[in-house]
Simulated scan of single mutants.
Amino acid sequence: MNFFRSVRAVADASATGTGTIDWDAVGEAAKASVDPGSIDLSADERDGYATDVRDARDRLRRVAAVDFEVPEVVEVQNRHHWIDANVETFRRVMVPFEEHGPVFLPGLTRAVNTGTFALVLSFLGNNVLGQYDPLLLADNDDHGLYFVHPNIRRVADSLDVDYPRFRRWIAFHEVSHAAEFGAAPWLSTHLESRMERGIDALVEGDLDREAFRELDTAMTAVEGYAELLMDRAFDDEYEDLRRKLDERRRGGGPVAKLARRFLGLGLKRRQYERGARFFEAVADERGLAAASRVWDHPENLPTDAELDAPERWIARVSP
């Protein structure tokens, strides 16, 4: 790690180039403040990742009765690889804000924005375990499945849990997301349209509450259904893994807690829990096949009210 190089990259952003964010400096500063970690994997570890992904795909196909493929891009990454892969995602999301026009004190604004996103990416790069990336707002339909090996290894050790079992659990979770997007080819476009509406409104100085409400509802369904699949498909008991990981997320120092709040990670946890309760109720009442009907078409997504009253969704979609 080189904090001096990180600070220098942010400082240089104010003096070079145009625009409100220097994305090259974002990546450089984020990586300078994060140890990349090792991905010097043994043959058994490489085979383990491949086996975990393949087994997760096969079991999820059988359990959920949905046909999907894992992405062609499946990578075991270090932390710097993950940062590089996600700088472009952040850049795409921020395009409308950067195109909005002139700003007051552009050099200072550029440095502050660059430093903020470098901090965000460095925090996430040091904590993300796995990621299914549907590449929202991209110009192509490629998806990616990433495993940040140094983080998986470190967290397994810190939680005092069996590393291969923990790695397999993470693989099942990420492949569960691949199953959702594979079962619902319309889902990426649905999420993109709500995101773009919300961002466009913010750029114009307005707040499209309905767009963000629909986005939150859809993401709650995405996270909750993945939890349901994990519960029904994972081939081992895992309540201890979830409990220990949740305890770890609630812990940490004040800086980590502030970062989680700033990044909305508490909202993500709420989406998991609320969505899981909804789908568990549907599956218990009508079976997993009925719950999977949520991905038949966009109209089958639960409304915000139905998330807390699954019997209404059952009456509407699967009577």
Rank of each mutant, 00 (worst) to 15 (best):
M1T: 15
R5N: 11
A9V: 10
D24G: 15
G27Q: 08
A32W: 09
S33V: 13
V34E: 11
G37M: 09
A50R: 06
D52C: 07
V53T: 04
D58I: 13
R61T: 13
A64M: 06
D67M: 07
F68E: 04
P71R: 03
N78S: 06
D84G: 07
T89F: 04
R91V: 02
V95Q: 12
P96H: 01
E98R: 12
V103G: 01
P106S: 07
G107R: 09
V112R: 05
T114Q: 08
T114A: 06
G115I: 05
G115Y: 05
F117W: 14
L119N: 13
L121P: 03
F123G: 00
L124E: 07
V128T: 13
L137C: 02
D139S: 09
R154K: 15
V155F: 13
I170N: 08
A178M: 11
G182F: 08
W186H: 01
L187Y: 07
S188V: 09
L191C: 09
E196S: 12
R197A: 09
G198A: 07
D200T: 11
D200I: 07
G205K: 05
A211N: 03
A211Q: 00
A218R: 01
E223P: 02
G224D: 01
D235F: 04
D235C: 02
D240W: 02
L241V: 04
R243T: 15
K244N: 14
K244S: 15
K244Q: 15
E247R: 15
R249V: 13
R250T: 12
V255K: 12
V255F: 15
V255C: 11
K257W: 11
A259L: 13
G264N: 12
G266E: 14
K268W: 12
Q271R: 09
Q271K: 03
E273N: 11
E273Q: 12
E273P: 05
A276H: 11
A276W: 06
R277T: 10
A281N: 12
G287T: 06
A289T: 11
A289W: 12
A290G: 03
S292N: 10
R293V: 00
R293W: 07
D296T: 06
D296L: 00
H297A: 04
P298W: 03
E299L: 03
N300I: 06
N300L: 10
E306F: 05
D308P: 12
D308S: 13
P310A: 07
E311P: 10
V317P: 01
P319G: 11
